[in-house]
């Protein structure tokens, strides 16, 4: 016995197998099955494929001709930019501001993080009421300020803004907490030395905080971009079926629409494959752009 107990790795594998089997059954098998389904002809949700499509790659050809695939890709890319600038950018500003106050830090941490703990569907319903055309809170405020006509916040030209604002707002707190933890890890001695040298607050932020936060910002950016690909529940709650005029589809909501609403299950499977490919490519690109530095 003795020290050999630590050299014997077999028990570790025995304990790993259940989790591995779970992953195989509930992740890898559905994943590969989904790829197969994307080449099949499936008449409705819940039924098996009746045979291969003609030609077998028909769904992938259709994807290129489907204008709403391009709409959803364009909107998803916009969502990525919005999450990068709106979520990570605002989170950096908030984190730097909170880091510079001496009292009430915990209060702001809690307040900014709070939206994360509310379900996205509940937030969608909440923002539906805020942006409601008739008697919505925002239109009521505008009315009090003298606006005579109601604004349709879900109309074609403005719908994307209305959809992305709550998504952006919800996750600011998440990145804020990561960034403020990063700021806490910066040694106070650096700030004290800068102060002795006569550095202003802005100079301390510019030359100490931001450079030393580089790796944390990179991590946040990667999380934000890949997270944008998965946004689903809040947009779907606020803009079901890509309304208005199918202009608010994201890749995730369009896949759901094709699968669950139009019952075009095999095409939905092909769209799911597209999302996976897109996710892999984008995470590689983002990792290459936001490379972490060694200090």
């Amino acid at each position: 016995m003795g020290a050999s107990i630590y050299r014997n790795k077999k028990p570790a594998f025995v304990f790993l197998i259940p989790a591995f089997a779970f992953m195989v059954v509930f992740l890898y098998y559905p994943f590969f099955k989904n790829i197969i389904n994307s080449f099949m002809e499936i008449k409705q949700l819940g039924s098996s494929g009746t045979g291969l499509n003609t030609p077998w790659y028909a769904n992938y050809v259709e994807m290129f001709h489907d204008e709403y695939v391009w709409v959803s890709l364009r909107n998803t890319l916009i969502m990525m930019v919005v999450t990068l600038v709106g979520q990570v950018g605002i989170a950096i500003i908030l984190a730097l501001m909170v880091d510079n106050i001496s009292r009430g830090k915990q209060f702001f941490k809690t307040v900014f993080f709070f939206p994360i703990v509310i379900s996205a569907t509940a937030l969608g319903l909440l923002f539906n009421l805020l942006f409601l055309y008739d008697k919505g809170m925002i239109n009521q405020i505008l009315e009090m300020l003298g606006k005579t006509e109601l604004t349709d916040w879900k109309a074609e030209g403005i719908a994307l803004f209305t959809m992305m604002l709550p998504v952006m707002w919800q996750y600011v707190g998440f990145y804020f907490v990561i960034l403020i933890t990063g700021l806490n890890n910066i040694s106070d001695e650096l700030y004290e030395a800068a102060e002795i040298d006569g550095a202003t607050t802005w100079q301390k932020v510019r030359y100490i905080s931001i450079p030393l936060l580089h790796n944390v910002i990179c991590t946040c950016s990667v999380l934000a971009v890949t997270g944008a690909l998965k946004v689903f529940d809040l947009p779907w709650t606020m803009f079901p079926k890509g309304m208005p005029l199918k202009s608010t589809f994201l890749t995730g909501t369009y896949m759901y629409y094709q699968t669950m609403e139009t019952k075009n299950v095999d095409y939905g499977s092909a769209l799911a494959v597209l999302i996976v490919v897109l996710g892999i490519v984008l995470s590689k690109v983002v990792n290459a752009i936001f490379k972490e530095k060694d200090y």
Binding site: L132, Y133, D134, L150, D152, K154, A155, P240, M243, P244
Partner: peptide
């Protein structure tokens, strides 16, 4: 309704029951 393309059925039903 002005927002018929972006409204839900619940919203337009509310317009009816609220006398609009």
């Amino acid at each position: 309704p002005d927002n018929t393309l972006s409204a839900t059925d619940d919203e337009t039903f509310a317009m009816f029951t609220e006398g609009k």
